[in-house]
Design a protein around this nucleic acid. Sequence first.
DNA 1: CTGAAAGCGCTTACAG
DNA 2: CTGAAAGCGCTTACAG
Lengths: 326, 326
Amino acid sequence: MNIKEVAAYAKVSVATVSRVLNDDPSVAPKTSEAVRKAIAETGYVRSALGRNLRRAQSDVVLVVLPNMNNPFYADIAEGIDSRCKDYGLSAMACNTYGSHEKLEYFCGFIEKRQARGVIIVSAPWKRDYSFLEGLPVVGCCESREDMPCAQVDIDNVQAGYDATKYLISLGAKRIALIGGGEISPSNIKREQGYRLAMRDAGYPIDESLVVNNCYNYEQGSAVAKRILNASPDALFAAADEIAVSFINAAQDMGISIPDELKIFGFDNVHYSTFVKPKLSTIDQPRYEMGVQSVDQLMRVLEGKKARTVMCQYKLIRRGSTEKGVL
Amino acid sequence: MNIKEVAAYAKVSVATVSRVLNDDPSVAPKTSEAVRKAIAETGYVRSALGRNLRRAQSDVVLVVLPNMNNPFYADIAEGIDSRCKDYGLSAMACNTYGSHEKLEYFCGFIEKRQARGVIIVSAPWKRDYSFLEGLPVVGCCESREDMPCAQVDIDNVQAGYDATKYLISLGAKRIALIGGGEISPSNIKREQGYRLAMRDAGYPIDESLVVNNCYNYEQGSAVAKRILNASPDALFAAADEIAVSFINAAQDMGISIPDELKIFGFDNVHYSTFVKPKLSTIDQPRYEMGVQSVDQLMRVLEGKKARTVMCQYKLIRRGSTEKGVL
DNA sequence: CTGAAAGCGCTTACAG
DNA sequence: CTGAAAGCGCTTACAG
């Protein structure tokens, strides 16, 4: 069933059917009604292919993200979904699994006219991003200088600084840092913040307490013993999952939290409250960051100047750093 | 830049450019080379819109799922991604947030010609699924009789039976059941399996130990005290998140696990090993289920008979049910 | 208020 | 081996 058949069924021209489909007010009420009746009776569904080809634009926004394992992305996606709907667009998520080739492949959907724009959530960490130049693309999280597009993020240097300063305010002096990928922009910034705060407090950093390239629970557990044996009095992990691995490792070693060791994470994922004590962490406004990403993408699409947006994070105090706190 | 301009640039017809684009072997090597050069020099990217309209098909498979919060879906998505690639298709994920309207909306992409087919992961729980009749759609998880399409799932009745029987084999007699949605097909089946196993063992079910509509950690925590005060000797939760909430609640009440209470979950999500003791659970072959879903979808698209596939699950024994087990 | 016609960017039988 | 032409399903100026 195509528009021509519906037109014949309703005894009008295809132009008229098209006008009804597009709510053109110039169509006479009676004609419009007849066409709607024909559409209903035939079960006709307009082909987006014909329409999009003719209008030279798609109504799909691609959300390109590393994978769906991290629930951190879920709220961002929800913000994107919601705001896209406001603009009459549909968001669809594609996984790169960290592959730069896949990122390029999905961005290619713009040029192939299958997507109106792309929101890149936590871009893979290496490589050249110059191919994004001029494309309707917005980055969300893992913002970086060499990405030629508007980006949405939090101030990770400040967040790392705040977290460390908070631990210091609780009396910590020997603070371990367990970081993620050495080339991850956010990780680099969080470490910068950590180092600034330690310097400002006048505390030396014991480099044996600093570890990087620690991505998941298993890797955290693997280095935990060595770090904990060096007796830090606090620990700042660049991800909640790592922090949780240290909570467990510390408890196995009979180290009491938060008395002997304060542990601080990052991201406030839902299971950060499943552990005991509950994890203190940084909460990023994930949903809002998704919304902002769409807004900036729309600015690009409308030819307006898009800008890089820094969102407000929250420091969440819980039992892993303070006794008696929820 | 369109195919016409490339043709002019290469001094050939658009037909020839199209043939080169489609690797038609009838094109003379020299001509082909010249066209490829033109494409490279002009930076031409073929419009998928024109191509898809002409060929009357899209190369996108929509993966419709409730949300991205549950890492359970991540592995399914990865299996789908991987298998789609084998078929030259691109998988894109869309969230319904449990809305039946959104499910219908996304399935509409098939009729709008924007998607070749749809894989519905964990369909929303109520309503009429007859609109799927005849569409190239496959269901994955939460399989149901009234869904007129091929489906991929595990045998949830048997899994519930096995889990319960396993707890019984460890000496449990008063086994609590904490279920999810009362109208979720998988939940209903797991409870069936539980009841069958209890009956086969000749143990009565204390209905005060059976709870449903318990979806998340908070809801688990909310009912935990009442259930635990009724002193079950084991507990089967229809989701790991619920099981974890009970591990924590039991420990708060001074109940020792697994000695006084054995706890069993479902799904083997990654944080089921973050807790202490580690959680015994049922592991579904998520990746494989994703792969199978694509295979069945391809059968539908090729006009072959697709079938409903039951995958093998694994019962994972850990410390929440047995002392000394990893 | 409505219709005939051009055209979006491709692919593919058909003819040569 | 290559090109001219039709046509996929729409939208939209243009004419009336």
